[in-house]
């Protein structure tokens, strides 16, 4: 059965790159451009995991993460944070907020799918 990934990412290029790689590796993708949209989609569509960009136009990624985690559905949902290289300090904060794992930007197309799968393995 195909797994569904919700990608919450405001940058369209990134969104395309991530979704393209995921789809190329056989994942269904849902796209959300804002935090609010992402939260509602995560709760309504119930994806198998979420790739959450930390820098969103409407809210901080951690807030979105906490909002999702606050629901019954989202409590155990794998949520992978995508962080900027420069924001290395975010890692602890995100982990504390309850993210399942994180991927650092820039996204390496050769490595990303392995990273995602590795994190999902850990969640299982």
């Amino acid at each position: 059965m195909m797994q569904t990934a919700l990608v919450i990412e405001d940058n369209e290029n990134n969104m395309e790159l991530i979704t393209f790689i995921l789809e190329a590796h056989g994942y269904q993708t849902l796209r959300a451009m804002t935090g609010g949209e992402g939260i509602s989609m995560a709760l309504s569509a119930a994806p198998d995991f979420v790739l959450l960009d930390i820098q969103l136009p409407d809210m901080d990624g951690a807030e979105a993460l906490q909002a999702i985690r606050a629901t019954e559905l989202g409590r155990h949902m794998p949520i992978i944070a995508v962080t900027s290289y420069a924001m290395s300090g975010d890692k602890d904060r995100l982990l504390a907020a309850g993210c399942s794992g994180y991927i650092e930007k820039p996204i390496d197309p050769l490595l990303i799918i392995n990273q995602v799968q590795g994190i999902l393995e850990q969640c299982r």
């Binding site: 290029n13 900027s84 197309p109």
Partner: peptide, 22 residues
């Protein structure tokens, strides 16, 4: 740091995707 890298990330990302032949 964000704005400069974001397009570069896209370039690297997509170039990598194309190079992989995906």
């Amino acid at each position: 740091s964000h704005e400069l890298r974001t397009p570069l990330n896209s370039i690297i990302g997509f170039t990598g995707v194309v190079l992989q032949g995906i």
